[in-house]
């Protein structure tokens, strides 16, 4: 698949932002760094949702807004739609992306993974690698939360990644 320069730039900016907040500004407090990155995502999502909903009629219910996120919003951002949407019909939605663009260039260092598997003592090393990767997901979480909040749906969004390029976002709507 073709890859545009601007896309690589966005990748670079996201990674550098995460690195800057985690490694320099709030090196000692990862929760604070996560909060800050999420807040940036929130603002961006807030603004983008205003722009991308400009030409469409108002949404009648939550599902319609979530579908908008899955289809149009995601297409605008990542040139693809969310692959799978699940819901319990009680305010929880799971948005699964099997090939999340911002994670396609991320890989865990195999050396770290191997030591992690063999030696239990260095488990913290593997943890920190996973933590670094999960830091990358606070920004998209904020994007989703910002967009939905602007559409009048207050919610909490968390991300989960099991095997790397795939990840899922869990949206819990606050009632």
């Amino acid at each position: 698949m073709g890859r545009e320069v601007s896309e690589s730039c966005v990748d670079g900016v996201v990674m550098e932002m995460v690195a800057a907040y985690c490694g320099r500004f709030y090196a000692a407090k990862p929760e604070l760094a996560a909060g800050r990155i999420e807040a940036i995502g929130f603002q961006v999502g807030h603004q983008l949702s205003e722009r991308y909903t400009m030409e469409r009629p108002r949404f009648t219910d939550h599902l319609e807004a979530i579908k908008f996120i899955c289809k149009d919003f995601w297409s605008e951002l990542f040139k693809k739609q969310i692959d799978n949407l699940k819901t319990n019909h009680r305010g929880t939605f799971v948005l699964q992306d099997n090939h999340f663009r911002w994670l396609t260039r991320v890989s865990l260092d195999p050396a770290v993974e191997n030591t992690d598997a063999t030696e239990n003592d260095s488990g913290s090393l593997g943890d920190s690698a996973a933590q670094t990767t999960s830091m990358l997901l606070y920004f998209p979480c904020g994007l989703i939360r910002g967009a939905l909040t602007n559409l009048g749906i207050p919610c909490a969004v968390s991300a989960d990644m099991s095997n790397l390029p795939a990840c899922s976002f869990v949206v819990r709507i606050k009632t």
């Binding site: 949702s49 205003e50 909903t53 108002r58 559409l151």
Partner: peptide, 17 residues
Amino acid sequence: YPTENYKVYGYLTNTKV
């Protein structure tokens, strides 16, 4: 909202603005 001198037109966005 039509009054004798004015007419008011409205527009409501998805974001309730």
